[in-house]
Amino acid sequence: MMRVYVGNAVTDGAGDDGWLLGHFKPGGDVRHSDDVEIKWGTHAAGEERARWVSGERRTA
């Protein structure tokens, strides 16, 4: 049986600093995953990062 979650990224991410899917969601929640993490965010026009992360290993 395939489970599907439908929601609102702004509302759902508010409780976890924007994180929507990942290991931090409770086991049994369709949004729980040990393999993938998804974060939602909005940025103001012209916003820039102070610096980029280095030395981490990630895939996209």
Rank of each mutant, 00 (worst) to 15 (best):
Y5C: 01
V6I: 13
V6Y: 09
V6F: 14
V6M: 11
G7S: 10
G7A: 07
N8R: 07
N8P: 00
N8I: 00
N8W: 05
A9F: 06
A9P: 14
A9H: 07
A9Q: 10
V10A: 15
T11M: 05
D12M: 03
D12Q: 06
D12H: 03
G13P: 01
A14P: 00
A14N: 08
G15L: 09
G15P: 01
D16G: 00
D16V: 02
D17P: 02
D17H: 10
D17T: 07
G18H: 02
G18Q: 03
G18W: 01
G18T: 03
W19T: 12
L20H: 01
L20Y: 00
L21H: 02
G22M: 08
G22C: 12
H23C: 08
F24Q: 13
F24M: 13
K25R: 15
P26L: 04
G27R: 14
G27A: 14
G28W: 00
D29W: 04
V30E: 12
V30R: 03
R31V: 03
H32F: 15
S33E: 04
D35F: 10
V36E: 07
V36M: 09
V36W: 06
E37W: 05
I38M: 13
I38N: 02
I38H: 05
I38A: 14
K39V: 05
K39S: 05
W40T: 03
T42L: 08
T42A: 09
A44W: 07
A45G: 12
A45M: 12
A45H: 07
A45D: 15
A45I: 12
A45K: 11
A45R: 13
E47M: 11
E47D: 13
E47Y: 11
E47N: 09
E47R: 14
E48L: 12
R49D: 04
R51F: 15
R51L: 10
W52H: 15
W52M: 11
W52T: 09
W52P: 03
V53G: 00
V53M: 08
S54G: 05
G55V: 07
E56N: 07
E56H: 06
E56V: 15
R57L: 13
R58D: 04
R58A: 09
R58Y: 09
A60G: 10
A60S: 15
A60E: 13
A60T: 12
